[in-house]
Every structure is written in C-alpha cells, then in structure tokens.
C-alpha cells in the first residue's frame, strides 16, 4: 500500500488519491508547436527509479500533489504542493 504524506491532510492511503502521471512535463505556452504538445502529452522518461508524479487527493483536500516515489521500491521520499519542486534523490 502506497502511503502518501499529504502536506495538508497527513499520511493517507493511496486509495484516497487519483494518479495523474509524470509531473515533470510542463504544458507548453500559447503558440507552442505541435511537437511541443506531443512531447507534453506523450513523451515520458518512464524511469526505473525515482519518479516525480502527480497524485490528486480527491477524497481529502482536493489538491494535486507532486510525489517523489521510487518505481521499484515504491518508497515515497517527498511530497510537495503543486507549485513547489521537490528534491529528487540522485539514485
């Protein structure tokens, strides 16, 4: 069971959240190319290791959180608010 330490609500089970994928991709601004939008929507590093990802605490504070989680151990190392950039361990 992944448990996420929500900065607002405290430690909660994964079922309270909805996953929304890679949080490192940034939506291109107005006038950006099709290529840029393609990368935003489809291009993923899909790392085996630390992954910064969106989790939406829908059952709790309704906030999108940036979670740093390892894709082999499932360890959650850091949880940040949407506008913050959490530190990502090197390995």
């Amino acid at each position: 069971m992944i448990r996420i330490d929500c900065p607002w609500c405290g430690v909660r089970d994964e079922v309270e959240f909805t996953y929304r994928g890679d949080a490192t991709v940034v939506r291109p601004g107005e006038g950006a190319s099709e290529e840029a939008f393609h990368d935003f929507v489809y291009k993923r590093a899909n790392p085996r290791g630390w992954h910064v990802e969106w989790w939406y605490h829908g059952a709790g504070c309704r906030q999108f959180l940036k979670v740093v989680r390892h894709t082999m151990t499932h360890e959650v190392r850091a949880v940040a608010r949407a506008t913050e950039m959490p530190e990502v361990p090197a390995e």
Binding site: A23, Y56, F64
Partner: peptide
Amino acid sequence: QHMEFYLQT
C-alpha cells in the same frame, strides 16, 4: 478534476 488540474498545476 480536469478543471482543478489545470487551475492548480
């Protein structure tokens, strides 16, 4: 949820 995603992130 879509609205909240775009607004917050």
